[in-house]
């Protein structure tokens, strides 16, 4: 898994590529990267999952922990570029009720306002 960080319109964008799974984790996790940005005062977080094929329970845990940390500080956490298969799983597990999921990343970026 590779995570690249960039910023646009005061939104921190995490471009994730590969698989977010337990067995394929670099030194730093998605959650720790998000927390570092929150510590720097950033409050708008977008995770671009366009390059992600699969997420296991660890990956879901990372996304939920990142969401919780951002939300607790009054920030906004959104996902974009999610595959149809993952979206289906997110829907069935009701995660779409909590996480703001956008198909298109540009739209997601605009939605931060």
């Amino acid at each position: 898994m590779v995570i690249k960080i960039r910023e646009a319109d005061k939104v921190v964008i995490f471009d994730v590529e590969g698989e977010i799974r337990r067995s394929d984790i670099p030194q730093t996790t998605l959650h720790s990267l998000v927390e570092a940005q929150l510590d720097r005062g950033r409050r708008k977080v977008l995770v671009n999952l366009r390059g992600v094929d699969f997420i296991d329970s660890f990956g879901v845990g990372q996304i939920l922990a990142s969401y919780t940390s951002t939300q607790n500080l009054g920030g906004k956490f959104k996902l974009c570029g999610i595959s149809q298969k993952l979206l289906l799983i997110f829907q069935i597990t009701m995660l779409h009720k909590v996480l703001e999921i956008h198909e298109d990343c540009d739209r997601a970026l605009e939605s931060f306002g």
Binding site: F54, S57, T68, Q71, G74, I92, T93, M94, L95, V98
Partner: peptide, 27 residues
């Protein structure tokens, strides 16, 4: 309230334990 706290939102909408098990099962 200006926003719902993260854990509150999750607890209200998602069975996290089941969700994680589902992802593990699929994997």
């Amino acid at each position: 309230r200006k926003w719902q706290e993260g854990q509150e939102a999750l607890d209200a909408n998602v069975d996290i334990d089941l969700t994680l098990k589902i992802f593990n099962t699929i994997q």
